[in-house]
Design a protein around this nucleic acid. Sequence first.
DNA 1: TTTACTTAGTTTAGCCACTGTACAAACTAA
DNA 2: TTAGTTTGTACAGTGGCTAAACTAAGTAAA
Lengths: 384, 384
Amino acid sequence: MVKEINTSIVMDTIIRYHSISRARISEITGLNKGTVSSLVSELIIQHLVFETGAGESSGGRKPVMLQFNGDAGYVIGIDLGVNYVLTILTNLQGMIICEHQEDIIGLNSQEIIPLLVRSIGIISSQAPSSPYGIVGIGIGVPGMVNAEGTVLFAPNLGWTHVDLRAAIQLNYSEMPIFVDNEANMGAIGEKQYGLGKEVANLIYISVGVGIGAGIILRNEVFRGTGGYSGETGHMTIDANGRLCRCGNRGCWELYASEQALTDMGKSIQLDGTIGTLESYVASAEKGQGSVIEAFEKIGHYLGIGVANIMNIFNPDLIIIGNRLAKAERWLSRPLQETVDQRALPIQRQSAAVQFSSLSSHSTALGASFMAVSAFLQKSTSRSL
Amino acid sequence: MVKEINTSIVMDTIIRYHSISRARISEITGLNKGTVSSLVSELIIQHLVFETGAGESSGGRKPVMLQFNGDAGYVIGIDLGVNYVLTILTNLQGMIICEHQEDIIGLNSQEIIPLLVRSIGIISSQAPSSPYGIVGIGIGVPGMVNAEGTVLFAPNLGWTHVDLRAAIQLNYSEMPIFVDNEANMGAIGEKQYGLGKEVANLIYISVGVGIGAGIILRNEVFRGTGGYSGETGHMTIDANGRLCRCGNRGCWELYASEQALTDMGKSIQLDGTIGTLESYVASAEKGQGSVIEAFEKIGHYLGIGVANIMNIFNPDLIIIGNRLAKAERWLSRPLQETVDQRALPIQRQSAAVQFSSLSSHSTALGASFMAVSAFLQKSTSRSL
DNA sequence: TTTACTTAGTTTAGCCACTGTACAAACTAA
DNA sequence: TTAGTTTGTACAGTGGCTAAACTAAGTAAA
């Protein structure tokens, strides 16, 4: 049991420092040199770590540098969006090997699940050969997911109670499969591979048709008691505001989501195109004032909710992700201004607000990391 | 290190089960009988555990029952309120031995600190003799406190940057002293000794002059990056609402706190008394409709914020505490109705909203528990 | 070169705290 | 009584750690 913990510590240290000697690991972790040596040799036998040759001497014998073998295996990450499926293959370090995207507009769950299985098949076949092969699959879904991987409610997909994990498991019986909310996966993605690498507390705000949040506190996802935390889109920001389909009034997502944009757009004369987010972005880029104003209004309302979240959580970082992050150019300034006006001074001084750095891959990368994490945990524990 | 962990596990098991045999501990924890025996004998030497005699046989030798020695030492818990100081002495099980209260209306920090020291002295002298004596002091403060025990900002006391821990430490140099926000302490109190014993995620909402929240997630207080989490009072619930002194508009505490009551009270004809919370409660008890209406309005607005918190955290339990809990009778129904209307169905099904069960002792008890917790941790670890 | 000094990594002996097994003590029930 | 249970202790064995010695491989200055 102690060995398990120490193996994890050594593994994490190697991954974090990218290239490191046994002696440095011993220094950093406080573990004895002998202990480190023996643990490392087991990791090498497991193909999880390899020696890259001699490093720079600092006045004595040259160290043998160690690296994490990111290509010991591969994982699949899936971002099941409202109208697309993005499937990626990454190695254990989150390097994207290949990706595959398909539209799912108008499809129901009976049609989407086979499509997911097909996508997994296509992507799997492109994995380079490796000691462990494909070691897991992660899936981010735009809805509430329970601990068993059942999608309880995904309004924008029209799903209720779809046992997604079991459905995929039918085709890949031995494969570890992780299903979670798209915002949680996005938060994990940003924490591991994006802007959140150095912070312990971050909130990833997924602004798409609605708004959801992935909450990472003390370096771990906080899912709440039933797994339904982060329903920030239905936070009241206007007590006497418009009625939301959830039954509440003045929900944040009525004022600051893609749906809000569409509502505003009805009164905007577009240059002939349909009112998709992409068309609005295109119009804004052409300088259409009414569209830019709409974005700025949404940025302002985003700021109100972001300030609330800052006041409640006192996080290191708030990241705006998902579809509306594409309009960063017009959202950013009004958002920041509103936060500066509305959040408590001590909060806005210590917390940063940024837009996703992984473009549209946050969720898929987070999903793939779930699988990586589980694989490494299993690998370092079973080396008994 | 393993021993430390196991000692803690044994200790926790004894505390939880109140009266238990070595054999049962071994069963429950999975530790070997011999291991449990040796750890228990050390705890007995330390006076932390004692044998209470034979228990009921279940067909064989009678077990020797063990109990946690709650009277191995005592701790002091202080609730520094806006206009009172409540000091309590408890044993290690949170049993209140004696208490002492003083008014501090109109006093500044230079006057309050000596008063705190005096109160500690008065209470200390009443502690029964015990193996360890007074083992720690906890203080809950109505303001932001950093990790060093400095009160950064306590608007209702008029304090900025008062190094409270250091000031008390001057008089009790070797004593462990814990200073934290009053809402965090209240949350801890409810978690340990009140309504939250069985739950992992609870939010304690302290409704006094303003509103603050103590957040317990996965059985631990979440304090945020700088220690400033839980500033829920400044959550916007009305985007275009009234201006708050914090600079924001439509802050929750403008509509749902003692301050809100006072504001409303200006237009209420009271029966000759001044507008304190107590006088409003008295009027409501006499059946004065306008006061009851005011309470109901506050209950409604409390519900809006509570629904927000439910949607964001998906907790097991939300507890309403501090001064306004005294008006439970009139707040409760409108609060629950609003939550039922506004929180997502799945949230309100799984989370309960209750009023504090420890009457006005939540904060002081939480403060005392901080000291208990630190003492037990130290005791079980230094038995090397 | 040679020599002295560093630093890296392995080996070995010893130790700590756990587990498993055996056993004594103390009880119940037939 | 006698057989069978349950509790708690004793003791040997083991896993995994640390400390220290040692080998290996370098640098720097005489």
